[in-house]
Write a protein that binds this DNA or RNA. Structure first.
Length: 641
RNA sequence: GCCCAUGUAGCUCAGUGGUAGAGCGCAUCCUUGGUAAGGAUGAGGUCACCGGUUCAAGCCCGGUCGUGGGCUCCA
């Protein structure tokens, strides 16, 4: 068998027998390579130096500086941690994979781990790393594995589920774990690690099964990378929307109001107000009609829509007289009623309704999180009702709208997911083949037309129709749920929606749900973190603060403040008896975009000394110049289209 | 919902059973200063809530509510 070994983009062909590990192959060729490289990359997959090579192909050797090798680094560190835990405590190990950032291990123990335990475990891990145990791979039979792990019900369960007759184990200094790898060559390769946190978890994520203790950690091949990671971790914490929300006085959640219910303070409400205004204007431009619907409706409505049957546990219900009502968890049934309020002709379609509709859902208490996961939120909801021949065009319009919208808020990177039904279980979905094919075709066509790359997710569709989800990436590269466009083959039937065609007959209506921002709560929460509280001028709750050097500037400052207000700016006046540097600091902490500084010089020459939040002192300008400059910046933001 | 942690002044936090603390913020006064913290004085707390143990509870115990980290990234 011949394989290619690629070292820094130079490929050499090697003749070798099948089933040798890369370690053996490289040892024969050039043993020093085993010091420089840690794992290999082949066919978009990570392959460690232990696993037998059975396929011909090109193997790219990766050093530990390559990001792709981190999975092996983390997995190995997870084993080192497990070994340390086993040495220190009498516990059973469950499962310990590498994850997106680092690793964890789930451990079955009666007593939860404390910070002190983490220190002890860390010390033991250091010993294991210093001992530099070689890591060995072995492929054994399931029967054999069951004997080795006889006293560990978790591993036994995992072995039972493996389809192969052979399973792989990895060993290091007397420690054995059932594992499919990949791993580094020895424990000494891990040179910097940190155990980050302990949390509870369930065996296989199932709340009905054993409750376990999970330890999270991160590791790198050098101290600098670890410090860099920890620095980024701290930075992300600093821009947490809950922290900034308090510091900038944007919103609060009150115990007396209830968990998951956001109260918008004036500054937060201003941001929301600006977004809503922009949102409405854009919708009207694009042919939507804005409607408003009540917060509650009789159970009957939710029985027709089906929510009463499959969504009941998330709904708040209550009685008025003898009638049961529901606090609305969705807006769609109302929109359909509006559609059905008249006989619709093919000429009327498409009909597009939009609503900033506040809905309430009873989320489990443990999942609530700041503004990002709440119980009451305002959806930027919209429904499009159209004919079959309009579907492609409508999807295209929504897609363009969605991208315009999120780009306005400074999001530049996206990932697009197309969720379609599971071809094996077509019977689990509402709608017929023709509808699904038409809808999927329209989604794919519009994505292709725009050269948008997307990931196809088989079986990820909701039961009532296929959808496109746009994931947006923020300034720190974190992913957020963005716009979503979903077909619905369920509700039109339940509500007997139809239109009268050119032929005078009734025809079925295609219904599309779409949300561009998602919910205002989550969207603004995300925006706070994305901008780190440094909102662009058009969104900033306070745009300009006018402040004086001494009280000799008070009168002119008041005059300027009034002038700014008359010109529609959101501004504040600081006449406090404090030093200039102190007032500037106060304003900077509040992340206010512009500061007007007024001292004796300015009063004398009728000018403004202008300071920008992220740039510092800009210089002196006449009032007219300043207003033109700032208005220009506003206009740039709003007229992006 | 479950596991663990946690709740003290508007904010950030100290306080291991014996009279409730600091810094920031706020108010008043002094200071009139030029691009990120001038000084002094003062106000501000039912230590989340309910119950228990104790001569005595912010602290120990139980419950409730809230908050935080997690709860399939699959050997």
């Amino acid at each position: 068998m011949k394989i290619k070994i690629n070292i820094s983009n130079k490929s050499t062909v090697i003749e070798t027998e099948e089933g040798l590990s890369l370690k053996k192959i490289l040892e024969r060729k050039e043993p020093s390579l085993l010091d420089k490289y840690a794992v290999a990359w082949c066919d978009e997959k990570l392959i460690d130096f232990h696993t037998p090579v059975r396929e011909e192909g090109e193997y790219f050797l990766l050093s530990l500086n390559d990001e792709r090798s981190m999975k092996a680094m983390w997995h190995t560190t997870s084993h080192i941690m497990a070994q340390a835990v086993k040495r220190l405590y009498k516990v059973n190990l469950a499962i310990g994979p590498a994850i997106k950032d680092g690793f964890y291990y789930d451990i079955d123990t009666q007593t939860p781990f404390t910070d002190e335990d983490l220190n002890k475990i860390s010390k033991e891990m250091k010993k294991i790393i210093e001992s530099n145990y070689p890591i060995e791979y072995e492929s054994i039979t399931k029967k054999n594995a069951k004997e080795i792990f006889a006293d560990n019900k978790f591993k036994l369960e995992l072995i039972q589920e493996i389809e192969d007759e052979q399973v792989s184990i990895y060993k290091q200094g007397g420690f054995i774990d059932l594992c499919k790898g990949p791993h580094l060559l020895s424990t000494g390769k891990v040179s910097a690690f940190k155990l980050l946190s302990v949390a509870g978890s369930y065996w296989r994520g199932d709340e009905h099964r054993e409750s376990l203790q999970r330890i999270y950690g991160i590791s790198y091949s050098n101290k600098e990378s670890l410090n860099e990671y920890l620095y980024r971790y701290e930075e992300a914490k600093k821009r947490d929307h809950r922290k900034l929300g308090r510091e900038l006085d944007l919103f609060n959640i009150y115990e007396d109001v209830g968990a998951g219910l956001v109260v918008w303070h004036p500054k937060g409400a201003t941001i929301r107000e600006v977004i809503e205004e922009f949102w409405k204007k854009e919708h009207i431009k694009r042919g939507y009609e804005i409607i408003r619907t009540p917060h509650i409706a009789k159970s009957k409505l939710w029985k027709i829509s089906g929510h009463y049957d499959y969504y009941l546990e998330n709904m708040y219900t209550f009685k008025v007289d003898n009638e049961e009502y529901v606090l609305k968890p969705m807006n769609c049934p109302y929109h359909i009623l509006v559609y059905n309020s008249d006989i619709r002709s093919y000429r009327d379609l498409p009909i597009r309704y939009a609503e900033l509709g506040t809905v309430y859902r009873n989320e489990r208490s443990g999942v609530l999180h700041g503004m990002l996961r709440v119980r009451g939120f305002t959806m930027d909801d919209g429904h499009i009702f159209c004919r079959e021949d309009q579907v492609t065009d409508e999807i295209g319009k929504v897609l363009d709208f969605a991208f315009d919208m999120i780009k306005t808020f400074g999001y530049k990177d996206f990932e697009v997911h197309l969720s379609v039904r599971d071809p094996e279980h077509k019977e689990d979905y509402a709608g017929n083949d023709k509808e699904w094919e038409k809808a999927e075709g329209a989604l794919i066509e519009t994505l292709n037309e725009r050269n948008i790359e997307y990931e196809r997710k088989e079986g990820e569709a909701v039961f009532y129709g296929p959808k496109i989800d746009i994931k947006i990436k923020d300034a720190l590269g974190r992913e957020w749920q963005g716009p979503t466009i979903q077909f619905d083959f369920n509700l039109p039937g339940r509500f007997k929606m139809k239109y009268i065609g050119e032929d005078g007959n009734e025809h079925p209506v295609y219904m599309i749900h779409r949300a561009l921002l998602g919910s205002l709560e989550r969207f603004v929460g995300g925006l706070i973190e994305h901008y780190n509280g440094n909102f662009p001028l058009w969104l900033a709750p306070t745009q300009i603060r006018v402040l004086t050097v001494t009280d000799k500037g008070n009168e002119f400052a008041k005059e300027m403040y009034e002038k700014l207000k008359m010109n529609g700016f959101r501004c504040e006046l600081d006449l406090k008896n404090a030093k200039l540097s102190k007032k500037i600091r106060d304003s900077e902490i509040q992340k206010i975009p512009y500061i007007f500084i007024i001292g004796a010089k300015e009063v004398e020459s009728e000018t403004i000394s202008l300071r920008h939040h992220l740039e510092g002192d800009i210089g002196s300008f006449s009032i007219k110049e300043v207003l033109t400059h700032i208005k220009g910046e506003l206009n740039r933001e709003v007229t992006y289209i």
